[in-house]
Design a protein around this nucleic acid. Sequence first.
DNA 1: TATGAATGAGCTTTCATTCAT
DNA 2: AATGAATGAAAGCTCATTCAT
Lengths: 205, 205, 205, 205
Amino acid sequence: MARPSQKEERRRQIVAGLLRTMAQQGYAGATVATIAREADLTPGLVHYYFDSKQAILLALMQGIGRGVLGRFEERLERAGDDPWKQLFALTDALLERDPTGGTAPLQAGWLVIAAEAIHQPAVREEYSRMLFALVDRIDGLLRGVLKSEGRSTRSSRSLAAAIAAAIQGVYQLDAAAPSASKPGSSAPALRHMVEGLVAAQPGRR
Amino acid sequence: MARPSQKEERRRQIVAGLLRTMAQQGYAGATVATIAREADLTPGLVHYYFDSKQAILLALMQGIGRGVLGRFEERLERAGDDPWKQLFALTDALLERDPTGGTAPLQAGWLVIAAEAIHQPAVREEYSRMLFALVDRIDGLLRGVLKSEGRSTRSSRSLAAAIAAAIQGVYQLDAAAPSASKPGSSAPALRHMVEGLVAAQPGRR
Amino acid sequence: MARPSQKEERRRQIVAGLLRTMAQQGYAGATVATIAREADLTPGLVHYYFDSKQAILLALMQGIGRGVLGRFEERLERAGDDPWKQLFALTDALLERDPTGGTAPLQAGWLVIAAEAIHQPAVREEYSRMLFALVDRIDGLLRGVLKSEGRSTRSSRSLAAAIAAAIQGVYQLDAAAPSASKPGSSAPALRHMVEGLVAAQPGRR
Amino acid sequence: MARPSQKEERRRQIVAGLLRTMAQQGYAGATVATIAREADLTPGLVHYYFDSKQAILLALMQGIGRGVLGRFEERLERAGDDPWKQLFALTDALLERDPTGGTAPLQAGWLVIAAEAIHQPAVREEYSRMLFALVDRIDGLLRGVLKSEGRSTRSSRSLAAAIAAAIQGVYQLDAAAPSASKPGSSAPALRHMVEGLVAAQPGRR
DNA sequence: TATGAATGAGCTTTCATTCAT
DNA sequence: AATGAATGAAAGCTCATTCAT
């Protein structure tokens, strides 16, 4: 009972190693050897803690999910009861750019994961799971907003999906063509997009 | 003279082979052997027409760029003089889902390309080039809209980037988690988002 | 009967192409495609005139043999009856460095050929044939010298082989480490070596 | 701890495998697979110990350098103070033919290396380095001889280069056309050549 | 004669994974 | 727990040679 979980600590190291290398070299380029080096371990030990490279990726995805949602829930408390503020607390949390550049690996990693989801069923499953969780969370907040505006919540889920898509899109641009968007401009732009979605009269134009 | 030159045709075959396999297996999974099989050629011949696998990818990107923009320019003619209609002609063209499922490879491929752009400099360059072209095109139409609404065009480029991001996001969701969004719901949702962007009072909220 | 021998001309081109590329890239590096390009032909045509790459090499060796010996025979006429002059006419001819650098390919090529002779039996055979011819020629002249000095010709063939070896050695150094020997210093040095061989009392020291 | 490190031993095996196969098949013919088989290893393992095939070659060259010079230094001690004996200790050591045929690979290998030096810059560099070391060593001994004979040492380096060339030439003949020279005849012939070089009056004949 | 498309065998190299220690 | 040697199955790419035109 000395160290409560060497094991968990080691796994965290490895997962972090994968994220860092993957964000720079892609998934295929993230060799087990590279991951190990980044985590200050040996290749053999990586396979002692994880059955396969894919297993590391899945663990990474779950870690990201917990981390990002966790960061948001903190903010939600500070948002009070205003539905708009709550919704924007979520979008802002997701789009926040770490000034130290620390989130770049996260966004790049996320893009890489999405690409892997296309052909790795296990990854797609986890990816979908996380995305549904996100859409559901957005949907919940969005319904609050719609109600407060006296609007129908009928198609709220579609709208939530659109918001999620927009967020993913910002990730993608930031990661793959960082020069295309001005830093700091995404969060406010997304707010206006969301306002547009909410204000829209179904069937208009 | 030797066999009549089918050089361009062959190259097209190979590029198409890459897109199809890449959309199903990712870039690393699209081996030269797979590409060749998909194009009904031998691996050696693939390298007769392209110096490297990466060269095929770059050719594919240029082909996609030409194809997508071409499809749009056709529609633009039908949109007449209404700035809103012109802008929506573009977004609709980009988001249109081929009912036969034919565009799925394109969107999946695009996501894979974005992921490769992260660590392959040549790909990133081409990716940025194409994205800039898209943002510029959106920007042009957006300015028309803003003027017609009597609004400032000062930050039009940021808005254009946001719109491009939203489109990329839809691609990503469609490719990696198709079940998350209802088919057909993206195009109208994007319209509303764009309206929101345009209607926004800078500095509000 | 129009052109007496297009064929021979073409073959000469190809052989020259092999020599040039081989002198720069080695035998393995001298691709049929490279040879063809250097000869301003197409790869297919190369195999129309030669059955195989090796066949070009063998033709090259014969061409070199004729060329080098031919150059020497010219000089021999000018050497008159002095046995020493005749012998040095040969060594000088072999060691002469083209001031335009034109013989560099020849020496480099010769070194490459020697290396191929190790494992290509057909090449080794031709190489030996040429070397024997050279040693025999040297031997003939050397006997003249030995007689004129009143010395035994018993071991003249060994001495001739040693002289041939020294010449090969100069080729090798010139080709692989040109900076090791001063240009122009080889021919006189070789003369002195030969003099030493001739002057030696068998069994001395 | 893992298996006890046999790193150096393994590297030696591989280098020896390269020398053996290279002496029989040339450098291009010495595939990594062949080398591995000769060393009783798998091809993958070869690349575990060496980054590239070229790296094995460079290691081989350094090994040869150390080995040959080492063999000579032993003899030098036995040569006492006589400058001639010292010089001949060197040439004899270099030309010594292992009666078991054991040095044949070495000489053949050396020829192959010289041929590679032509077009592989890294190999040329190492080759030059070794040759310079050899010429320098010869030069040192030669100066001793020249002084003891009361002769000028002005052009000793050129003479040393000529001696080195003659040695290389013997290697070449032995490797590529072993039948051309009688076994055992090279060492004495070289001695006489060297004597001729030393005895020569500069500018004579 | 001449072309250059096409083939297929083979090359070097990489890497996830296993395993003796 | 930990190491790093070892494996083997690919991968991308090259190239002599053939062949339809």
